[in-house]
Write a protein that binds this DNA or RNA. Sequence first.
DNA 1: ATGATTCCATACCGACTAGTATGTATGTTG
DNA 2: CAACATACATACTAGTCGGTATGGAATCAT
Lengths: 204, 204
Amino acid sequence: MESSQSTKRQPDQTRQRLLESAFEEMHRNGFRGASLETILKETGVTKGALYHHFGSKAKLGLAVIDEIIRPFVEENWQPVLAADNVIDGAIALTRRLTHERNDFALQLGCPFNNLIQEMSPIDEDFRALLNGILQEWRDGVVEALRLGQTRGQVRADIDPVATSDFLISAIEGCVGLTKATHSDAFYKNGMQGLEQFLEQLRPR
Amino acid sequence: MESSQSTKRQPDQTRQRLLESAFEEMHRNGFRGASLETILKETGVTKGALYHHFGSKAKLGLAVIDEIIRPFVEENWQPVLAADNVIDGAIALTRRLTHERNDFALQLGCPFNNLIQEMSPIDEDFRALLNGILQEWRDGVVEALRLGQTRGQVRADIDPVATSDFLISAIEGCVGLTKATHSDAFYKNGMQGLEQFLEQLRPR
DNA sequence: ATGATTCCATACCGACTAGTATGTATGTTG
DNA sequence: CAACATACATACTAGTCGGTATGGAATCAT
């Protein structure tokens, strides 16, 4: 009787619940605005348990980036990098982003970019981790563009590195500014311009 | 003797010092991270005086946006909009941005975009004001592109609205991500991509 | 079964914050 | 000059926050 009523520990699940709740709270309010009390209330976990799993709020934040945001970024880009034709793959991504947009999420913006904007100037650990993820994304696009060039699918006269950087800038810029405009049209215009830019990467 | 030692009031200057110090503090730490105590220390103004001029921290922030950031944004874009050829004017801007870049400032990012990213999801007054400024920028670029089309300087088959949105997205995206990369090359690549995009706006 | 380790719980702490209450000094007006 | 308005000064307030100290319970290893 007593043993069937006692609390069974599931540390992995506790930890995961904390990560997920922290991710949502960080997405709504940013890292600095994220309230540990809110996370605790949402998860029903206590502060002692939270500090057992993560030594500080910053460590929790970094774990969210590493374990939730990194996979999120990768999931978005893997199909593009793996596509038979990187331009087709990237255009498919912009169309998917346009088609699947969620207005509430657009008002909050991209969690990855949001944290870059917020934390890079004020915390070197965050900046380094975020930049690491960004660098992987950039490198992946560069590699795909180069492969596309060897396949004759991408113009030989463009610089893959510069192009990758510009593409990523345009995407995150568009998503970021949509937070101010709250405008469907603005978002679509950004995606359309991206598509236009991608099209002119095809060999002439 | 006594009157020559007394403090002479200069409310306009007090107010301006507060605005400028608040701007810098907001640029370094964001609005939420901006500390009134720091601003007070930097300016030597007291809290009573600050609250006399601005009823709240938010009002101070909104005044900074209206009175310092709006002119900053306008100063950057006016030459482009007034140029004989908008494409030439925009390319001159990207070159100027590249040439005049200040590494420290790039690590802090664009004050305008920073505030958009930080405040739009969490404060409607800020979002509305920032979006108003963004809308003026967008409208200005649209008008200049249209004028360029009538002058035969800009392709007739592009949509000025969509193009304007994409251009602005790409600029702010590049500046924003440079906060993570701390990379000169990244910044230049973004500006180069922008220039490339601008070039293909010329009639064929 | 026992001791050690891990996971979790609760009350408390000190620092920081924006804002308030109250007061003083300066400037304007009739 | 007095009354009033404006600009400024200082001490205080209540609230929020991340983190700490301490303790208890569950699980693991022997």
